[in-house]
Design a protein around this nucleic acid. Structure first.
Lengths: 241, 241
DNA sequence: AAGTGCTGTTTTGTATACAATATTCAGAAC
DNA sequence: GTTCTGAATATTGTATACAAAACAGCACTT
């Protein structure tokens, strides 16, 4: 519409130009880097963050670093105590038990709100799932594929707020999944649930699909909880600091 | 436990002392102030935020102010475009339609996860609701009471992550409700739904209670959507900037 | 009159400086 | 040897400084 009227009047259509020449603030880049460092465990859970040292390592000043850290704190990757700076949020059983129920509930809502997926999407979902089954159970690629699958599943959900919340929670969960992967060499993926979800959707049975979606996430939780319990039990000797 | 062993050894029990002498960072105080300014409309929706001016007005430097602004951006009160700073998030129909469904879904989950409320809590809820019915329909106090009621309803939910998300969403919603109040002199409260929720809970019918909870929030949404539509429709002449 | 290019001013984004609080560690007291 | 104390050090929280954009105005062209 814009473009048509513009063309009609002999002007160029600015609105539909290729790219908006993005200027990414330093704080944003820094944040991505630090977030990856946390996800990959390079910054150990529970460990303190030394601002000056980290800023130096990244080659930036403390200002954009702090802004990045504050953002990561808001998302739950970091904690901060007044006067003693930031520390990496520890991996806790409680967090796992808190995060996943919210996650599956929100994904369920998102699925309910979504327009029925197009046939092409359904096929792509099935294809992705086959890839997933083929991928090594131990590979990080499996996690990426799983994430892609879920994102595609919800791609027609019109509720932005919802999708954003879901994304944040998934990232938080991924932190645990990655840690689990590094520890056990495995990764909690369930291509089986994906198939049942798709089958239910093909029949137009959204309730069923939502139910399987919940089961899908529960698989992850059931992998993680015993692992993290074991992880935290063996060190009861040292008093807390 | 700590206190007993401490007393036995003749030391004072530091751990159970009255207060932890809280040192609140400036960024936190500033954030509260700015958040209130946004909620009360003192910072107009869509308007730009001039950092230097605001910092001067608050009597602080730009650093803690910026940290506060970034936090408020993460929560959805502000937006920021690279290179041109912060602006107050506009009030949009879309936001209302996005926020409330997530809100009632999460509150429903929280209610399901909660242990059955004690008798004393039930009585207090009923009492609060009577107060609410008594409060002027137009008063801000009604909003406060409503908030209190919901918080108490979910007070036994063990999922922190969930409660935090709910709190954030409620604050966002409150921004619309306050704006609506300032505009129309009324406030979307439904003490009726509260009664039905309590009745369902008394019968142990959580499903029913969750259903009424959804209706409760839908009342707010149904108040806000037409209002905001009317609010935005009258100005279609001016091209967007 | 609408558009263009220049110039001075604002405003943001980042870096640095400084003050106050935490932490550390050597030595004293027990 | 352990626990306390206090000076030395490190680290955070906030303020200020600076550089690079963005913005606003204005003469100039057409």
């Amino acid at each position: 519409m814009t473009s048509e009227s513009a063309r009609r009047e002999g002007r160029n259509d600015i609105a539909s130009m290729p790219a908006a020449l993005v200027r990414v603030p330093l704080r944003t880049k820094v944040r991505r880097v630090v977030q990856r460092a946390i996800l990959q465990g390079a910054l150990a859970p529970g460990g303190d963050v030394n601002e000056a040292a980290l800023a130096a390592k990244l080659g930036v000043s403390r200002t954009p670093l702090r802004e990045a850290l504050l953002g990561l704190e808001a998302e739950g990757y970091l904690e901060s105590a007044a006067g003693r700076g930031f520390s990496v949020a520890p991996l806790t059983e409680r967090d796992v038990e808190d995060i996943y129920p919210v996650l599956w509930t929100l994904e369920g809502l998102a699925l309910r709100l979504s327009a029925p997926p197009k046939a092409a999407t359904m096929n792509r979902l099935a294809e992705l799932n086959r890839e997933l089954e083929g991928a090594a159970r131990s590979s990080k690629k499996a996690l990426t594929l799983d994430r892609k699958w879920h994102d595609l599943l919800l791609s027609r959900c019109p509720n932005r707020q919802l999708l954003q919340s879901i994304g944040l929670l998934k990232d938080l969960g991924e932190r645990y999944e990655l840690a689990y992967m590094r520890h056990s060499g495995q990764v909690p993926i369930s291509a089986k649930q994906h198939r049942t979800i798709l089958a239910a959707l093909r029949k137009g049975n959204v309730d069923r699909a939502v139910q399987y979606l919940e089961e899908n996430w529960r698989v992850s939780q059931d992998f993680l909880v015993p692992w993290i319990q074991a992880l935290q039990a063996p060190a009861p000797m040292r008093a807390r600091r």
